[in-house]
Design a protein around this nucleic acid. Structure first.
Lengths: 360, 360
DNA sequence: GTTAGCACTCACTGCTAACGAGTGCTAACG
DNA sequence: CGTTAGCACTCGTTAGCAGTGAGTGCTAAC
């Protein structure tokens, strides 16, 4: 067994920009990350040596650990403490070493039975998905609802409430419903309102939401003017109502799970993270323009300082290659990557299927 | 000055079930609560004595403090520490001593300019109101949206998405919009759908939402059957869609503010509170069946153990005596009652006015 | 009724010593 | 030459201990 591990010179750089690690170094790194993920305590050479399947003395392990530290894969909180993985170490682990666990039968059951439930509101689905994810992982989940950007108008309705206001309702081809209260001019009567709605429906059906506003003014405005007086005010209200439309909704769940992690027993640290979570715009920024599939951002790889001690795993759920939204999971860098990644894979795919049915 | 304060025997019980306190005791209790609210540290006799307007030596104060403790208004964390108010002490303070501060000009400006903004979605208003409240107080705000219970149906729309599903939209007299996706039988065509919608609109307009479902089956079902085949399935879908309707929406803001309070530097304590905040149903229970006006629940007066170290101030906002919803503010028992109560008073009233305009 | 004086309590601070987990280095081993 | 045993060293952690100071309760005097 011992011959397997040759002690190669270590500064050779591989194609990923990483030094090529010997098989033994990989094994040790793997052991350290696994241990640390479990215990949250610096890992010493002795505990690695005592592991089953490791045939080396603590001294040998120490030598390798010193090398791995020099290469930047490990860190030492202080002299005379064990080693913990650095961001680079986690990165290597995630890229090359992590064994994706099969999602355990119980968890799989829970996900499946969740998605089997019939839910009649998209918001409900997303909210519950966020909840189930945070429950199963004990981390904090962040789910971004489906983007309405690519959606198109299915139907438009205007329901008068009283003399001066009405509710404008927009239904998209995906079944998503947006509504705004708008004010209508005082000398505007029912029959005219009906005309307006009819024109809007015939002219705007099928138009993508993001082009709705411009279309409203260019093509429809003219024609509308022919039939209806005082339409400027209505147009104005509608325009305003539509412009604020593309607000994403962010669903958070299990933020308090952060408090259970030993690395966050310091209240101040948690505070900065919580504040970050509260700022929806920043959150959105971290989520948008992510490549599809599962992305792992470890520690300092994250753009925002507040979560430099966290890892953020995101999985965009998509259908026919079109991205619908994003599931995110925030935890300490010391995350159970093996379990979480595969779980999110399952969840995002199931979610895509479920929402896909919706969209058809 | 010293003659003013007579030292009456102290076990006399007043009409509120409280011992009648001498003027001096009231003054001391008031001073202690004020001090503790500011400093979060046990208050000693010396610091009270040194205050302006107090003409007594520490020893005298100590005697009174001992009496107040015996009466249950004060507590001692340990011998040789100062006193802190007990729940009963806060209660007396809130009921008899607190001086409601005028809302300061800046804050008032912020509230007013917030409510002057035109918002076109009720959710937006409520969400922002929660935010402004938590920002201004540095506590955690919880806002319950207007109850839909008393609302009635204004209009009903059914927008087909494809062969097998449609979006049912309900608009209430208050401009609130609810929507659900329902499935429709495969052999069901457009003209029939229109008939259904027409019948539903004529029959159900003005019906209170909570009676919608029963009405649907008793009165409408029969008539509907006359015109339309296969209506059981539609009815069923509709019934289901309506039944889950009355879900309250809870808006939280500033949960992380909890972390700034020194009494919550202990992570475990915060955890239980956060968990409590996460459980919407429990939250709702704490909010419903509250008398209107401003309610203060101090420490152990709260039903749930998790917030025995917190105070919960609620203000229901109502119009024409009809309760619309509730604003809540959660902080440590050591809350700045004087400031917060008057602020919530302003906010709830302004909110009622704003939403009142909506409802008309 | 009020207050000065005093002994007592107890959290908190700073200091030292002992402990132990873990390291780096060196020399010996196969 | 890779591996390993041995050993000195580092450094965080813990326990013990004396000193400090804020605060109390009690008593006796004003």
């Amino acid at each position: 067994m011992q011959q397997i591990f040759k002690h190669y010179p270590i500064q050779v750089i591989g194609q990923e920009g990483f030094a090529v690690l010997t098989e033994r170094q990989r094994m040790i790194l793997n052991a350290i990350v696994d241990d640390y993920i479990r215990s949250a305590e610096p890992v010493g050479s002795r505990s690695i040596s005592k592991r089953g399947g490791v045939g080396f003395s603590p001294a040998t392990i120490r030598n390798e650990m010193a090398d791995l530290e020099e290469l930047g894969f490990l860190e030492q909180p202080h002299t005379s403490a064990g080693r913990i993985p650095s961001t680079k170490g986690y990165r290597y682990y995630v890229d090359h070493l992590v064994k994706l666990e099969e999602v355990n039968e119980g968890d799989l059951q829970r996900v499946r039975s969740f998605f089997a439930k019939k839910m009649n509101q998209m918001e409900q689905i997303i909210q519950h998905a966020a909840m189930i994810l945070s429950n199963m992982t004990n981390y904090t989940s962040i789910v971004l609802g489906p983007e309405t950007f690519d959606n198109s108008l299915k139907a438009f309705q205007l329901v008068p409430l009283n003399d001066s206001s009405a509710v404008a309702i927009i239904v998209t081809n995906t079944g998503h419903v947006e509504n705004r209260t708008i004010s209508i001019p005082p000398d505007f009567d029912m029959s005219e309102l009906e005309k307006v709605v009819n024109i809007l429906n015939t002219k705007l059906a099928g138009v993508p939401l993001h082009r709705l506003q411009s279309k409203l003014f260019t093509e429809v405005g003219e024609e509308l003017g022919r039939y209806v007086d005082h339409c400027e005010m209505i147009m104005d209200s509608l325009g305003k109502a539509l412009s604020s439309e593309s607000e994403h909704r962010v669903f958070l769940s299990g933020a308090s799970n952060m408090l259970t992690q030993p690395e966050f027993k310091d209240v101040d640290k948690v505070k900065t993270i919580m504040d970050w979570l509260d700022e929806t715009p920043v959150l959105m920024k971290a989520f948008t323009s992510l490549p599809s599939g599962i992305q792992v951002r470890i520690g300092s790889e994250n753009d925002h300082d507040a979560i430099h001690t966290c890892s953020l795993i995101t999985a965009s759920y998509s259908i026919d290659g079109k991205s619908l939204g994003t599931i995110g999971l925030l935890g300490p860098t010391r995350m159970d990557y093996g379990k979480v990644i595969s779980l999110m894979d399952v969840l995002s795919k199931d979610m895509a299927v479920l929402l896909g049915r919706w969209y058809k």
